[in-house]
């Protein structure tokens, strides 16, 4: 294992709706022996709402510059944060004029383009490595999982770190920890959950989330696993609202991949925030042996 210390960019929901993801991420890294140093005084990446790329680049220049001072690569558990950090990182590395301009706005935006940005999934599989993780596993997570990747893991091409249509990194981890990938879910893996429209076109967002939940349920999944807090809010946090609005029952547990991985590493479920998931996760816990 080449990595033992990383800058950690938790992302805005880490304080609130995705606190479970934050907890499990930290716990898992600790167990794997990687020290996370939170980017000091980090600011929002711009999420999906800041549409002007130049603003996004500037916002993230600050985060990157902070991590760069510590000489650490950044890891984030959030897919959107990852997308914004990574594309900004790329743009800043390529565009000298932009960097100069940002420096002019404020010295805290002076980023030298020396660090990398990573998504936790990428770090687990490609940096820490399957062998290393495997050597630290303590339990078998005997669950049937619908691995849901969402948008920014395989897309868009320049920031993607997995296949756009059939990503596999999460599948690999699930199989490693003894889980089973449900069949017939493949084509839903990367279909958007609707999250970005939740506040403006809730009807569309519900429809899209429901489709994912339905397919996972029909495929016989015990749970959906994911790696993005917005997807988590949409599929887990809003699941009851979807059930109510559409007059259906789903009851599909939704967990972060860090939570599943944490279980396999023998971490206490509550330390992974598994008591905080909106849809009850007890059944899953029962299958950890």
């Amino acid at each position: 294992m080449s990595i033992n210390k990383l800058a950690y960019y938790p992302g805005c929901p880490s304080d609130g709706t995705a606190v479970d993801q934050d907890m499990s991420t930290k716990a898992v890294f600790e167990k794997l022996g990687v020290e996370l140093v939170e980017v000091e005084d980090w600011n929002c990446c711009g999420a999906a709402e800041v549409e002007d790329p130049k603003v996004v680049y500037a916002l993230n220049a600050r985060n990157l510059a902070i991590a760069e001072k510590e000489d650490l690569d950044i890891v984030t558990p959030c897919s959107i944060c990852y997308y914004n950090l990574e594309r900004s990182n790329k743009a800043l590395k390529a565009d000298e004029a932009l960097c100069t301009k940002l420096k002019g706005i404020d010295s805290s935006l002076d980023y030298g383009g020396k660090i990398k940005t990573k998504h936790v999934l990428d770090v687990f599989v490609n940096d820490i490595g399957m062998d290393e993780i495997s050597s630290k596993l303590e339990k078998k997570v005997n669950v049937k999982v619908a691995p849901y990747y969402g948008c920014y893991i395989g897309r868009p091409p320049e920031t993607a770190f997995d296949d756009p249509d059939n990503p596999v990194l999460m599948d690999k981890l699930i199989e490693l920890i003894g889980g089973e990938i449900v069949p017939n879910f493949n084509y839903m893996k990367t279909v958007c959950c609707g999250g970005p429209l939740m506040m403006t076109r809730g009807d569309i967002a519900f429809d899209m989330a429901r489709k994912i939940l339905d397919v996972a349920k029909n495929a016989g999944a015990d749970c959906i696993s994911l790696a993005c807090p917005l997807c988590g809010m949409m599929l887990d946090g809003k699941q009851a609202d979807i059930e109510k609005a559409l007059g259906i029952t789903i009851g599909m547990p939704v967990v972060y991949i860090t939570q599943l991985l944490g279980l396999a590493l023998g971490i206490e479920p509550n330390k992974l925030g598994l008591n905080k998931n909106a849809v009850d996760t007890k059944e899953i816990l029962g299958k950890v042996v």
Binding site: G16, D20, R62, G237
Partner: peptide
């Protein structure tokens, strides 16, 4: 516990002035 006190209070990033400038 996902909308605890931490989430209820407005965050205050120290570098807010820079964000405004941006």
């Amino acid at each position: 516990g996902k909308m605890g006190p931490k989430a209820m209070l407005a965050p205050k990033v120290k570098g807010r002035a820079v964000i405004k400038k941006i």
